[in-house]
Every structure is written in structure tokens, then in C-alpha cells.
Design a protein around this nucleic acid. Structure first.
Lengths: 274, 274
DNA sequence: CGCATACTTGAGCGTTCTCAATACAGGTGG
DNA sequence: CCACCTGTATTGAGAACGCTCAAGTATGCG
């Protein structure tokens, strides 16, 4: 199902954007957020396991994920897959579309996703007229850089247990930052194959690794849920430090504790919309 | 040895910056480049195997590498190292310093490096007043993202031969783009340990892998030089496609062939400097 | 000329992979 | 409501790729 943007009120768009990392960027002022609302061309719902963008095509719009999970992926010549990034609610799933039209990475939904569409030409205009939006984009891109580097280091230099453990840690912290995780548990819609493609392992080995993590009393992944039993031990086992996620750079953000975005005076969606 | 910026004329700074990827970005206009020259606080020479920035400190300036090689690195708890990025002449080695002051990655020189220093506050002012510079920064950050993702995919899903082969391919193309490679040969100041830390292998295995690549007639790495014997076969063996480097997005750039930046009307350093 | 760093080689081991079979879960249609 | 069907999870056995440890050889710098 797809709505035209006109069928959604600006207030509705603002309300939905309010939970995104772009919106919460400490760089932005209210008039930046207002301009952002006006620039989104529509809001779309995309079914699970569908392409947000297909490999080998071109693209002309950014997609801001309002709800649902997605993944960037790449295919090797032998048809194996790699997932360089998981996209959670509030993330921009294809920031590269702001500058490039060629597509080396595909994007698939993992669950049903609601996305706001921001056409490239409007994004460029936004950046030209709102330097703080440009700064926010850069900040997001650099954060992705840090995450990507962390993942590459894991794949290259850490054991399977540490890789899987770290991914589960990262997801907890990122989900907490957007209010999508309880104390130490969260919905995990990934299959073991997704986990393998993200960590450079096979799904078979992910399976065995998860069993070890569970019997060690660290974390249980079962039935699309992750439950962390011993956060301190898990962090220690895999050397996880959340600073690379740069969550404290967000307004209302905190690197470790759940965020209630409905509190906090500044970045909520209550700005006046003409 | 360190020069104060004042001891270097603006024209000299412009001439040196002219070979950088930032300068050559197709986003920039002449007045952006002029502002950039004015914003660099000094030009420094740093000896090889020295820290450009140390792990666990903070940073307040970007460094644009005018000459020499450097590497971003990270250390695991067991003291093994990972290199998520190699920095070649013309690259910005710490774009993250534009937005963040915390430092999760160190940067070391591999050879003697000449760097231009751009303080963060000046970089932010530049971005605020010159949207095209902000766009160029974003473009560079997104290109780094693409490279990082490609490296992660290699480490996770490709064989040792392909990983090393691809790295050698990438270096050829990137060096050609800045006029630092011959037909199919280039100076390679990396040790086998550097290569291993970048590809997720041990130096011992890099050694054996290089031997295989040589006996297969693909490439010889010896005496700080890489000589590619069969470019087509090497590319085919490791599935290398240079599009992810986004070199064609640079003014005067070309994804495959050497670039003579002294030709081309627009991005040369002959802009008028007041 | 001597020392430090980098490279090379060998042997054995271990983590992770491959292949393959089986069990389970969720959704669909009869 | 059950039978089926597809996708996902689980288990086993054997093989492979890359690692570790260790010794020995170049190479380059002071």
C-alpha cells in the first residue's frame, strides 16, 4: 500500500519523523525540521522481504525508515550474500542516494517497513539552504562509518562468539535509543542467515554459536526475541563499548539507557507547521 | 618538522591542496576552494610510523594528506590490530573529526606524510557558509562508507587470495586517480603485517597468499613495489569492479585511467587568491 | 658491521565451512 | 481442522582454510 504524501498531513509527517535519528540530530533547529517535513514526497508502506532498492539499478531518493527493519546487502560472484548494515526504525537506509545515483548495494526489508521518501533533488536543496541539515547528514554518514569499521574489525579479528555477541549488544543499544527495547530484551526479526550474513559466518555456525551463548548464560535468541541474561558478562566477553555508535550526539539521546522521546523539550514534533 | 601556515604562501597551499580528493570534488566552485585554502591552519610534515592521532585521546582538527600513506587502526583487547582504512595522498584521514571529538580509531603514518591541518571549528564554519563544501564532505564520507562495506564483505565472504588481490586492485585504481601509479605498477609501502591487518589475515598467511598470486602470474609484490602482470585475470579472479570507489564523481577523475590534474580547465590551483 | 625489522618456511592445530539429513513452525488451502 | 508446504532451525561428520608457534633468512638502517 502506498499513500501519496498529500494524503498525509504535515503534522502527521512531523509526528512520524520525530522518532528518526535525523530529526533528533542535535545539529537541527526547528526551521530545519519544518523544511524537512515539507521535503518528504510521500510515506510508503513496504511489505517484508521486498526490495527497497534493487541491485544494479539507479536511485533518485532517500528513504527514512519510520518503522520496521531493513538491511543493506551485497552479493558475491558465488551468490553468497553479505550484509554491511542493518537498518532500524529511525535510520536512513540509503544516505548514499543523497550524492550518488549508481547502486552497488541493494536494500531489502526484513519486516514490513514504513518509510518516508525524500527525493534526491529535494535533499540537495535542503542541504544547500539548511547547512544544519547538511551537518546532520554528515554526522549520520560518519556514524555509519564508525559502525562499518567496527563490523569489519569484528569479522576480521574476533571469534564467532564475539561477533554474534557484539551484534546483539549493538542492536540492544540502538533499539533502546529509539525506545524499541525493554530492559534487556528486544524483538529480533532476523533469521540466523541474516545474522550470518552480517557477521561473516554461515547460518549453521551462527546456530551453534547462539547455543553456546545461551548455555553460557549470556543471551537467549529464540522465537524472534533476544533476551540478554547477563549484560555485564556479555559486554566483557566481546569487549563491547557503545561509544562508536555516537548516540550521545543525538538530542535526547543517551548511549545506554532507554530514551523517551516524548519527554524532552526540544526535538519533539510539536513545532508549528504553517 | 612543522611549518606554521603563515610561512607557506596561499598559492603554495592551493597548489598542494589541488591534488586532493576534496579539492577535485565536482561539488566545489572556485570560491569554495579559495575559502578552503584560507581555512587550513598549517601544513605539517610527520615522520613515518608516527601517530597522526593517538587512540583514546580527543581531536579538534581534520588532516588532509597531501603526500604519503597513512592508516586508520583499531586495537582489539588481545592487542591484535585491525586497519579499516588506508589513507593515500589526497585523502582526508579523519573526516570524523569534523563532527566528533571522541576518538575510537587511531591514525598512524606509514611513510613520511605531509598534511594540511583544518581545525574543526573552521571546518564547521566552512560547511555553514559553503554548502558545496558540506556536500563534498558528505560525498567523501559516503565514498568511505562504500569502501568500508566492500572491505567488510571481502573479509567476511571472500578467500584470502581474493581479499589480497582486491586490495591490490583497489590501491592501483586509487593511486592512478591521483597520478601515483604507472601503467600497472606502484610503490607499495605496506608491510605484510599491514596487508594482513587490512584484510583480516595474519602476516604469515599474507605471505603465502602473495606467493600464490605471483606464481599464478597475477601480481608481484616485492621490495615495496606492486607489479600487476595480468590485470584482466586478476580482476576476474577476485571480482573487482571499481565503481564503488566513486572516482568518476571527481572533476577530472576517471575510474580506471591515470588522471593528469594539470590538464582540465576547472579544478586546477590557478584560481585567483586575494 | 651489527642490530632491528621484515620476510620466509615448516609442521600441526583449530575454528569455521560444507554437505546432508532431520525436525520444527507458520501459513494456506482443501 | 487437518494436511501440506515452505522457510527456518538443528544436528552430525568430515574437510579446509587460515592460524599458531617457532626457527631461520633477508634486508635495511645507523
Amino acid at each position: 500500500m502506498t499513500w501519496n504524501r498529500d494524503s498525509v498531513s504535515p503534522a502527521e509527517v512531523a509526528g512520524r519523523l520525530a522518532k528518526t535519528r535525523l530529526w533528533m540530530s542535535r545539529e537541527l533547529a526547528d526551521d530545519d525540521r519544518k523544511a524537512l517535513v515539507g521535503a518528504c514526497s510521500d510515506i510508503r508502506t513496504i511489505e517484508s522481504h521486498a526490495d527497497i532498492r534493487r541491485l544494479g539499478t539507479t536511485t533518485d531518493a532517500l528513504h527514512i525508515v519510520l518503522d520496521g527493519w531493513a538491511a543493506r546487502y551485497k552479493r558475491m560472484k558465488d551468490s553468497t550474500r553479505h550484509i554491511p548494515a542493518l537498518i532500524l526504525p529511525g535510520d536512513i537506509c540509503d544516505l548514499d542516494a543523497a550524492m550518488f545515483d549508481r547502486v552497488d548495494l541493494g536494500i531489502i526489508t526484513i519486516t514490513t517497513c514504513v518509510v518516508a521518501v525524500l527525493p534526491r533533488n529535494r535533499a540537495k536543496t535542503l542541504m544547500a539552504n539548511h547547512p544544519r541539515i547538511a551537518a546532520a547528514f554528515l554526522s549520520l554518514a560518519l556514524t555509519e562509518n564508525a559502525i562499518l569499521g567496527e563490523w569489519a574489525a569484528s569479522i576480521g579479528r574476533r571469534s564467532a562468539r564475539q561477533r554474534v555477541g557484539r551484534l546483539l549488544c549493538e542492536l540492544l543499544v540502538r533499539l533502546e535509543a529509539v525506545g524499541k527495547a525493554d530492559e534487556h530484551a528486544y524483538d529480533l526479526p532476523l533469521t540466523q542467515e541474516h545474522l550470518g550474513d552480517a557477521t561473516g559466518l554461515t547460518s549453521v555456525h551462527v546456530n551453534r554459536t547462539l547455543q553456546v551463548l545461551r548455555t553460557d548464560g549470556l543471551v537467549t535468541v529464540q522465537g524472534r526475541k533476544a533476551i540478554i541474561h547477563d549484560w555485564a558478562a556479555l559486554k566483557a566477553m566481546c569487549g563491547f563499548q557503545p561509544s562508536y555508535l555516537h548516540l550521545s550526539e543525538m538530542d535526547g539521546g543517551s548511549a545506554n539507557r532507554p530514551v523517551r522521546i516524548s519527554n524532552g523539550p526540544s526535538p519533539v514534533a510539536s513545532i508549528a507547521l504553517n
